[in-house]
Design a protein around this nucleic acid. Structure first.
Length: 632
RNA sequence: GGGGGUGUAGCUCAGUCGGUUAGAGCGCUGGCCUGUCACGCCAGAGGCCGCGGGUUCGAGUCCCGUCACUCCCGCCA
């Protein structure tokens, strides 16, 4: 295994002030030694990565953050006996002479493979118990084990690299943002609960009995206040907290955003500022291609062509509406549905002709597993149209489908027939699955896009009323006039998403900086002005004292690093993530607290909570008692 | 809150149609080995088959329940 961590300084780590005495731990790190150092007496410290015991000759691969150096032990010396006993992952300091390896003993796979250190003295700084997971292998371990022993997991090559990558990506983002005139500010971590959005994490107030702080779901309101305070361009690598359930691409509890906001800008100005930062970072840390500018795709078009508002553009398949072609046809199922106002979405399957029957049946079963009644399809082969749907369509209709979906000989096409929203969603799922099964995904590229023109309002079927579809503080396109004169469901917002390879990196918006427009927008969504004043009082008040037009976005740092690292799980790029049940297993969060702490906070536990704690204590009597904090 | 998958040695996994003493690799312990670099060879220890109940002459295997992990829906910008 070749380790290439950090920069390979070859200069000795000697402090001149120490004079001739050797540093107690090391003169070089474990990637620093090479042919140039042959003959020197050196000292290295690190972990026992691997051991090869030949009885009368013993090798230890000593590993530190920077790399690996082979230590060789000769028999019948004191260090030999110590080295034989020592377990993997123990921490050693070795002093010895750098010797050149014989030509046939050089290891080209190791950066330091031309030399080895012949051990004179060895000191075991810290022994290691038998390991719950192997540091020196790529083997997969249960996530439970990895998280409980995260300090070991993080010693492993891949995780160590991912954590470093994350740090480097963030440093690069900071540099790029500052180069563009953005200034980094902090915002409060102890803030107020807001009625919109996700469930809050709450922190009880000692000084205000019965009141709570909330951890910020995002610094949204504060960054807008920075704009109102006259700072032109804000950014922050911002921690965000949301008490919602986990997904593979959504950490429970906490995550980080590149939060940014700009004054006196329109949507396109935000794109111009963000695009070079994102494209630049992806290009810097990946060999995959990044095409700029990112295409701008209206929300309606995304739903029609890709069946989702976060399209994976690596898949070269575009869906099309073909309801009009089935209208009045002999294929009564679709014709009848179209007459009722439903739609038919066509999903091309390039080159799918000749696939076994099981391929088509599999897709139908897939559609049914998503709640669809089924999935029609046609195969075009040798000038003929085949399949259960084709015989009900005349030549004109078949040609129309072929033309609209840009199909040729050897291509197939699937049909999703349902209401607009349901057909779009099904088409999107089928498109993604076809991309994978037909191996149409271009894995050598990051394909970004901006999805724009999201609707401002949407029909809430449960409430039987118009509600906000995204952020209520976004500026409606057309401003006050649009709100006063147009059908609310036709009004679009200056609201946008940035999407990469089907992963939503962020959404953002041009904000509504006009209190009069805000009052009108809330009125349309069924909220009285008083709601605005009571629930968003701080923001609403600030808008009355000269708020500049402003807008921004907040791309997810974790997802960016995840994509660059080429993994599909956020926990692979987070040093100490919470598990699915929002627990941190190394230190044991969340944990019970002492009665004294509860009393100070004016909190009492419910019977349910007390019973749960008692049951847990009965099961794990060894668990640490509450309130045993070491300080520092 | 709901659905799917998984649960066998410290770890990764196999275990046939329900049938005798539950296996392999890695790791661990002991022995041998002077040029390895995933060193090699020999031997050994290590199992509440997640837990509880049921069906059966007989359950790792089938059924019910439950717990844990994980993926998804709900939720979430």
């Amino acid at each position: 295994m070749t380790r290439a961590r950090g920069r390979g300084h070859s200069a000795p780590l000697c402090d001149p002030a120490r004079g001739r005495s050797m540093h107690p731990y090391r003169t070089h790190h474990c990637a620093a030694l090479g042919a140039h150092a042959v003959g020197e007496t050196v000292r290295v410290s690190g972990w026992v990565h691997r051991k090869r015991d030949h009885g009368q000759l013993l090798f230890i691969d000593l590993r530190d953050h920077f790399g690996i150096t082979q230590i060789v032990f000769q028999p019948e010396t004191a260090p030999f006996a110590t080295a034989e006993r020592v377990r993997l992952e123990s921490v050693l300091t070795v002093t010895g002479r750098v010797v050149a390896r014989a030509p046939d003993a050089v290891n080209p796979k190791l950066a330091t493979g031309a030399i080895e250190v012949a051990c004179d003295t060895i000191e075991v700084l810290a022994g290691a118990d038998t390991l719950p997971l192997e540091v020196n292998s790529e083997r997969d371990y249960p996530e439970e084990t990895r998280l409980a022993f995260r300090f070991l997991d993080l010693r492993r090559e891949r995780m160590h690299a991912n954590v470093l990558l994350r740090s480097q990506v963030i440093a690069s983002i900071r540099r790029r943002m500052e180069d563009q005139g953005f200034v980094e500010f902090q915002t409060p971590i102890l803030t107020a609960s807001s009625p919109e959005g996700a469930r809050d994490f709450l922190v009880p107030s000692r000084l205000h009995p019965g009141k709570f702080y909330a951890l910020p779901q995002a610094p949204q309101q504060y960054k807008q206040l920075f704009m109102m305070a006259g700072f032109d361009r804000y950014f922050q690598i911002a921690p965000c907290f949301r008490d919602e359930d986990a997904r593979a691409d959504r950490s429970p509890g906490e995550f980080y955003q590149l939060d940014l906001e700009m004054s006196f800008v329109e949507q396109e100005d935000v794109f111009q500022a963000v695009e070079p930062v994102i494209a630049g970072v992806f290009r810097e840390f990946s060999t995959k291609t990044v095409d700029t500018p990112f295409p701008r795709i209206p929300y309606r078009e995304a739903m029609l062509k890709y069946g989702t508002d976060k399209p994976d553009l690596r898949i070269d398949i575009e869906c099309a509406e073909v309801g009009d072609i089935f209208d009045g046809s002999d294929f009564k199922v679709f014709a009848g549905a179209v007459a009722k106002g439903q739609v038919v979405r066509a999903i091309p399957a390039p080159g799918a002709v000749g696939r076994p029957r099981s391929f088509f049946d599999g897709l139908i079963a897939f559609a049914q597993s998503l709640g669809a009644p089924g999935l029609g399809y046609i195969q075009f082969q040798a000038g003929e149209a085949k399949g259960p749907v084709a015989k009900f369509l005349d030549a004109g209709r078949l040609d129309a489908i072929k033309e609209r979906c840009r199909l040729g000989d050897g291509d197939a096409v699937f049909f999703a027939c349902d209401t607009d929203a349901k057909a779009a969603q099904l088409a999107g799922e089928v498109r993604t699955r076809l991309g994978a099964e037909l191996e149409l995904i271009d894995t050598s590229a990051f394909r970004f896009c901006w999805v724009v023109d999201f609707p401002m309002f949407e029909w809430d079927d449960e409430a039987k009323a118009v509600g906000f579809s995204h952020n209520p503080f976004s500026m409606p396109q057309g401003g006050l006039e649009a709100l006063e004169t147009r059908d609310p469901l036709e009004i679009r917002a200056w609201q946008y998403d940035i999407v990469c390879n089907g992963v939503e990196l962020s959404s953002g918006a041009i904000r509504n900086h006009r209190p009069d427009i805000m009052v009108k927008a809330f009125e349309i969504a069924g909220y009285d002005r008083s709601v605005l004043e009571e629930r968003f009082g701080g923001m609403f008040k600030a808008l009355h004292y000269g708020a500049p037009p402003h807008g921004g976005i907040a791309p997810g740092i974790d997802r960016i690093v995840m994509l660059i690292a080429g993994t599909d799980n956020l926990r692979e790029v987070t040093a100490f993530p919470l598990n699915q049940r929002a627990e941190e297993r190394v230190l044991g969060a969340p944990s019970p607290v002492s009665d004294k702490q509860l009393k100070e906070l004016n909190l009492q536990l419910s019977l349910t909570a007390r019973e749960a704690l008692a049951a847990e204590r009965a099961e794990h009597p060894e668990a640490a008692p509450a309130g045993a904090d070491g300080g520092d």
